[in-house]
Design a protein around this nucleic acid. Structure first.
Lengths: 348, 348
DNA sequence: AAGAAGCATGGGAGCGCTCCTATCTGGTCG
DNA sequence: CGACCAGATAGGAGCGCTCCCATGCTTCTT
């Protein structure tokens, strides 16, 4: 035996005040300080004041790790971004959503963990991490329809909120934008300006949001009694190149079209190039409307009319829903659909 | 006394396997498992295999909180983003840098904590958090020259790396792009194409990077023996509106200019509008070059020639430098300057 | 006036690790 | 052949909290 008393490993002093020291300073017990820190009502006013003074004097900040270990919660949520999904990283999604989430967390003790789930190895590790309850809740963005992660987390009863429903029968808590109505409004706007032959360039239809935009387009077309020729619909993949190809096909099939609704600004940008090449003027000959209201839309020439999604608000809402679920677990899985807004510019 | 034996608080079973259980399963001691988990060489091959098998069978994942508490490190770094600084959130900075940081961290146990330091209250909390060693290191992006945070962290001997030097005499570890050379190359490119009266629209000159871009412009102008009229320099603020105002002023003072180097794409976009309004054609009458190579540049009409910064690589490099400093603390404060690249498009 | 009841409080136990020392084993050396 | 050494391992102590039980008062109750 040696005189390793009061040392152990922790001998590495951090110099930071501990609960115990605050207690000593305030002349109370450890438990009482804990109660004050955590806002328990079972503390007398005087004692509370005493403790708070000690906390302030020492500049005490609770040790998160100790708290997590003892309390079996981490006060942290993870934002999981499937990295191959480049689209999400495109402006404006990522920044705005992070901003919204950050805003919702600002008044909380919650930390935000950013997890880029890239390759499969990472996704495995990730599943393990989250499974090991390393976080109190998870925000999932831009999930593919077939990804096992969401349901896996649900099974582990880790609170989850996803952005964008994966399908019409989404079972998880989700926050989505009103893709259907946004698209419908875009078409309505075009018809209100006298366009009669409105084409659309869609995203990949296994992405639910893209499907809903197409549904909204169809509803708009039907509602105005327009030409519903299937050759006025071209499926693309949300890329500029895809937008170009789709636009070429549309012009080939229906050279008489007088408006195009593209399901993303980037695809609209591709379409614009092709329209220009074909000698058509925007908006004189063909009106063009995009979706996302990104920087691309604002700086396009002519400036692109586009459907704005409240991305930041989506982030804020997701965080709020998640915090609520963490605070008061319930079997409910709220699904919130936020309205979109048509931003009219020069292209229509 | 009660028979509260073996319960205490921790009675809340997580169901997750612990080190102890792995040890029992493998028929070894706790310490041995710990050694295996942490890759200590002081374990025999057989024992290691035994333990690894037990780990795999039980699906053991170490508890981060316990590890942090016992080891006095969190295996997490924070990315601090001063939120009022909208510019950083603009494409492409934020996404690309996060991506780079994420990539560098992918092969690590390190977690990435995203901290939006908004208002003053948050910044205080932040200082406390970081001061309380809640993280192993900090990445600081887009810091203002006068912000106390960087030096505060340095004093607390928390490893820090910042993006972009704050001044010529930066003392902290920093990763920057070669603003000077990027600007010089832009001007060289313009003169190589026969432009003789090259103006510039700068960012706010208390931002070091903006100053360096101006220096680079001047060097380019001097190197080519061009007109160095101070009226060919207009200070703006990185916004589109600022770009417009600056461009108007330039045209007023020097209507004969035949090229403009804007220190950001967004300002270039503003300049473009004013040039158009004045009846000038791009690039025929006036060539235009931007900086950042953002989405704005790619989608502008005509597509904007721009100086690309290796943002993702900056993120990756920052993370690497930070990890190195965490692993092997040293008094060195490396400052790495990454090269920029001129992306020539139709505007010049 | 004695017991019941309600608060505020103190502090033990334990969360799951890491670190470190003590122990054990087998081999080496004079 | 016994002292010595090095490598491998076991397990105690402690990290800084949260929970919960027990304690000591004070205030009611009957």
């Amino acid at each position: 035996m040696s005189r390793t008393i009061g040392t152990g490993n922790g001998g590495r002093a951090t110099g930071l005040p501990t609960l115990e020291e605050v207690a000593a300073r305030a002349g109370v017990g450890r438990g009482t300080v804990s109660r004050v820190i955590n806002g328990s009502p079972r503390v007398s006013e005087e004692t509370r004041a005493l403790v708070e003074a000690a906390v302030a004097e020492l500049g005490y900040v609770p040790n998160r790790a100790a708290r997590a270990l003892a309390g079996n919660r981490t006060d942290a949520i993870a934002l999981v971004v499937p990295e191959p999904e480049d689209r999400f990283f495109a402006e404006p999604y990522f920044s705005e959503m992070v901003r919204g989430v950050g805003a919702a967390l600002a008044d909380t003790e919650m930390q935000l963990l950013l997890t880029l789930a890239g390759n499969d190895r990472e996704r495995k590790t990730l599943a393990q991490y989250l499974a090991a309850h390393r976080v109190d809740g998870v925000l999932l963005v831009s999930m593919h329809a077939g990804d096992p992660l969401p349901d896996l987390l649900e099974q582990l009863s880790i609170p989850v909120v996803i952005s964008g429903r994966r399908a019409a029968d989404e079972t998880l808590a989700a926050v989505d934008s009103d893709n259907f109505e946004g698209a419908r409004a875009a078409v309505a706007h075009l018809t209100a300006r006298g366009r009669r032959t409105v084409a659309t360039i869609t995203g990949p239809l296994d992405v639910y949001g893209a499907q809903r935009r197409l549904d909204g387009y169809r509803s708009g077309v039907a509602g105005a009694g327009l030409d519903a020729d299937p050759r006025l619909t071209a499926v693309a993949d949300f890329t500029e190149q895809g937008g170009r190809l789709a636009m070429r096909k549309l012009l080939e099939d229906r050279p008489d079209l007088d408006a195009v609704f593209a399901a993303s600004d980037v695809m609209a940008s591709g379409a614009r190039h092709v329209l220009r090449e074909s000698g058509r003027r925007i908006p004189d000959d063909v009106a063009l409307v995009g979706f996302d209201d990104s920087a691309v839309a604002r700086h396009m020439d002519p400036a692109l009319t586009s459907v704005r999604q409240p991305t930041e608000e989506m982030g804020r809402t997701m965080a709020r829903v998640l915090l609520e679920e963490i605070a008061r677990p319930s079997p409910e899985r709220p699904q919130i659909v936020l309205p979109t807004e048509l931003v009219v510019r020069d292209s229509s």
